[in-house]
Design a protein around this nucleic acid. Structure first.
Lengths: 229, 229
DNA sequence: CCGGATGTCATCCGTTCGGCCGATGCGCCC
DNA sequence: GGGCGCATCGGCCGAACGGATGACATCCGG
């Protein structure tokens, strides 16, 4: 009972959404040790984020993008900006891939920061976000600028689907069978993918797809079991 | 002036190495709010970590693995365990790939935790580590167990080299030329790689290599420049 | 000293790929 | 109505790939 009772005046009310307890503790500590900020709530994922926002009435929501379980950052951001009196959503993540950045901004995020940002930068960003200003981390801004200068053609959903199978090591024929297509059609899609990615082989396409976050790799979770003997 | 003056008795001295200010603040806050712990130092990377350890004399070092610049976690861990009176190194990271885990443990880490661990788990792990106990997060232990059950054959350095080129989209002939080899030799290596990875195409090998952290991808940094027109 | 792993090279052969040309149909927007 | 992007097909062909099999040299450890 102290700062948070000053009835919204001068104090920026912050809601922290991050699945890492350590990160939440860090943000809480940083904001508690600075005048002008009040952490009004926390969540480990996007589940019920709208209700939480209505209850805690934050000015700024610090949002992690990828969270282990539950609604992810993009979905939570979309849910928040759809509110009647939406808070500003400031994405705070370790990932700076084009895909993540674009999806977050499209979802309505006011800013995009990286977790390795120094405290002053972070505090300043929250203030700017609260004021309605768009704030982007330098590397993020660079990516967006580069993207505008040389717009990378977006893959269609069909192409992304095919790309996923290609990265999984499937042959054109396998993909054709699985998607109920002609092999010629698959080859056509693959050729288009190559052009758009600036690539000329399945391996290179796979590499590009993964590093750009175009496809979701199941990760090395299920080991294919090499010799298995 | 209080806890840290109790001359090493009852208090576990902790050194935090992490390139994220937010994470450092979080660990500091969590440990400061718990009796029996004292944060005696911080670092953003592994540079000069040995000297810092000698000066601050930590019982446990909380070590991040991948740090933006400077000496990485594995190197820092190795430097620490080589000291005369080495502190226990507890790796605290978000990555749970086989490669990261193995390299950290080989370097001499006492434990391996994931950053999404709840505070109690983390505090308990630090206590156990200080007592000399090996402590592994559940998912990490599972990976190691699975690896023991079905030991994944390690790729030789030559094979890793070839794999890197394969993942870059090079043809066998290109690789042969670049490495001054016969194309037959490259094919032979690639075949061995397939067997060891449990795979049968370059795309699948690329996918496996990246998700398992076997190769270092330059990332989507330098856009191949698709149509460039 | 011999077995095993590693690295090097070779031949053969069927399959797949990638590039190139073409075509049709559909929805959308100016 | 006429593009234009997208998705769907077809054929052709040279190059590359993947699998099988064998060979030889080196090095290391039992």
């Amino acid at each position: 009972m102290s700062v948070s009772d000053l009835s919204d005046l001068e104090v920026i009310r912050v809601l922290v959404v991050d699945d890492h307890p350590v990160v939440r503790a860090g943000l809480r500590a940083m904001l508690a040790g600075t005048v002008g900020f009040a952490v009004v709530g926390e969540a480990a994922n996007g589940d019920g984020i709208a209700e939480l926002a209505l209850r805690t009435r934050p000015d700024v929501v610090l949002m992690d993008l990828r969270m282990g379980a539950g609604v992810d950052g993009v979905g939570a951001t979309a849910a928040l900006v759809a509110l009647a009196n939406p808070p500003r959503v400031l994405v705070l993540t370790v990932y700076d891939t084009d895909q993540d950045i674009l999806r977050a901004i499209e979802a309505g995020a006011t800013g995009y920061l990286l977790k390795d940002a120094p405290p002053e930068t972070l505090l300043d960003a929250i203030r700017r976000a609260a004021a309605g200003e768009t704030v982007l981390a330098a590397p993020v801004a660079g990516r967006l600028a580069r993207r505008v200068r040389s717009p990378e053609p977006a893959l269609t959903s069909r192409e992304l689907e095919i790309l996923g199978h290609v990265a999984a090591g499937r042959t054109n024929r396998d993909i054709a069978t699985e998607l109920h297509l002609s092999e010629a059609t698959v080859k056509s899609h693959v050729a288009h993918i190559y052009v758009k990615l600036g690539v000329d082989s399945r391996a290179a396409a796979t590499s590009t797809a993964i590093t750009r976050g175009l496809i979701r790799t199941s990760g090395p979770g299920q080991t294919a079991g090499p010799p298995t003997g």
